[in-house]
């Protein structure tokens, strides 16, 4: 139990500290690195309560893919040295009221969740599903997602697909005059069509295009 407590407090301490550092650090790239540290320590906490599948998914999806894209964007946009001056600047900032509003909402949500769990103990028991202890949590998750909640699961997949297609459509632009390489065209070239004899008239030249 002692070792468990030591690990739990280590990981939660790292998670909280890195979450704070994520918001206060002046360098955007540092913020993303703290975000990654936060994700990793949260996934360690997931693994500690026995939700190993969720923890690993957190690592693969958030740390392995999403945070890489964050880093990519932050590095490419060259906002690395942008200082966040919301708190220092003298003139009134427009970000502050919105941020305060959002954080108040999140705070009340947390109070509702923790209060419900603290003062109404049967809330948890009615919510929790009957889980077979003999199977691993990957199996039990699959059993629930692909049977009882299959429609919601498929729907969320569809929403993600639509979002992806939407992002591609928004950023896609047709550029004229781009020569593209086609492997089939290259391989299927014959001698007869590869060489062309042209009679060049003097002072005219020839127009060669693909």
């Amino acid at each position: 139990m002692l070792a468990h407590a030591i690990f739990f407090y280590t990981f939660s301490f790292i998670a909280i500290i890195s979450a704070i550092m994520l918001t206060v650090s002046k360098n955007t790239v540092h913020s993303v690195f703290f975000l990654i540290l936060d994700f990793i320590s949260i996934s360690c906490l997931f693994i500690m309560i026995g939700a190993e599948f969720l923890g690993m998914m957190m690592l693969i999806v958030y740390v392995g893919a999403v945070a890489v894209l964050f880093l990519f964007v932050v590095m490419m946009l060259n906002v690395t040295q942008q200082e966040n001056q919301w708190f220092i600047s003298t003139k009134s900032s427009t970000h502050l009221p919105v941020g305060l509003l959002i954080s108040l909402v999140v705070f009340f949500e947390l109070i509702v969740v923790i209060g419900g769990w603290k003062f109404k103990p049967d809330l948890v028991t009615t919510m929790s599903l009957s889980i077979n202890q003999n199977t691993t949590n990957t199996h039990s998750l699959g059993n629930v997602i692909y049977t009882d909640y299959i429609h919601i699961f498929q729907l969320s997949g569809m929403i993600l697909l639509v979002a992806m297609i939407g992002a591609i459509v928004l950023t896609f632009r047709q550029r004229p005059g781009v020569k593209r390489q086609s492997y089939f065209k290259q391989i299927s070239r014959e001698k007869s069509e590869g060489v062309k004899l042209v009679d060049v008239e003097s002072n005219k030249g020839v127009n060669l295009d693909d």
Partner: peptide, 16 residues
Amino acid sequence: NVGILYLFAVSSLGVY
């Protein structure tokens, strides 16, 4: 239990 996921996760972290 999630050995292959662990391997996959660690190899995807290698990019950092």
